[in-house]
Nucleic acid binder design. Structure first.
Lengths: 138, 138
DNA sequence: AAACCACTCATACTAAAGTACCAAAATGAT
DNA sequence: ATCATTTTGGTACTTTAGTATGAGTGGTTT
């Protein structure tokens, strides 16, 4: 947000300067009006391209952004969420247990609780729902 | 491609007209140079935004495309692929059997063969790999 | 016709996954 | 320090998933 304000401020200053230079240059007869118009056109064309690229880049990043607020709303604990991510990665309960240095029983408990909170019956459904709720990435 | 040529042609014509009008209006003294510059600026800014939006929209549509050629390369049969899609949707073998009007045994066979062809051990891994290979959508 | 392949289904088995219930230790907040 | 939550783990059980093997049917290819 701070950067946006800075960029826009500099932009406005630059444009005012451009206007002044254009007007002065034309009045003093050192430059033709075609050149001025062409310059303005190119500059604003570039600005238009630049600003749109900035905003359009936010779309795909928003799609793959995880909604941490949603995780809290669901009541998912840190450990339950970790397990969910590993399930998405295709790991078995035993593999998750090894990766997180706990017993398989513990993982089963987490999985059961997680499935309840996501209101699904299977881990494959959990993957689907977690995607819909934007709490895991792809 | 035809449309692109058409759009660019009209664009060039419109710009030439704009230049002519600007020059004429200024020389005849009916309009100030500031207005001309502002108009040019707005028009080119809009063009810049428009062109960039056109090109950036092509990216997400490419990402969600399924690679039918890849399916053939893997040797996945039509039925095996159907089963894979239903697994992605979170269905159990029994549920898939009911949906496709076949026995659960048949589904198990399809699942086993599909897992072999995808070179994975579990259905959750199959979902992951199928995504990577772009053979299922999200 | 014979060979091949996809699809179907069954049995029997092993291995995961998931549920239910309980309980202790760790953590964090009031 | 007490209370609530999280994390951990166990036992026992049911359900689902996955493998192995065999086999019948229908359609296509050679």
């Amino acid at each position: 947000m701070k950067r946006t304000v800075f960029i826009f401020s500099s932009l406005i200053v630059a444009l005012l300067a451009l206007f002044q230079i254009s007007t002065y240059s034309y009045l003093s007869g050192t430059i033709s009006i075609e050149i001025i118009i062409a310059t303005i056109a190119i500059v604003f064309f570039a600005i238009g391209m630049f600003l749109n690229k900035k905003s359009s880049k936010k779309v795909p990043s928003l799609e793959s952004k995880i909604d941490k607020n949603q995780i809290k709303q669901l009541g998912l604990s840190a450990r339950e969420y970790e397990v969910l991510v590993e399930i998405k990665n295709g790991l078995s309960n035993k593999e998750i247990a090894n990766k997180l240095f706990v017993s398989e029983s513990t993982i089963k408990t987490h999985v059961s609780n997680m499935l309840l909170k996501l209101d699904v019956k299977r881990r494959t459904q959990a993957i689907q729902k977690a995607k819909e709720l934007q709490i895991i990435s792809f």
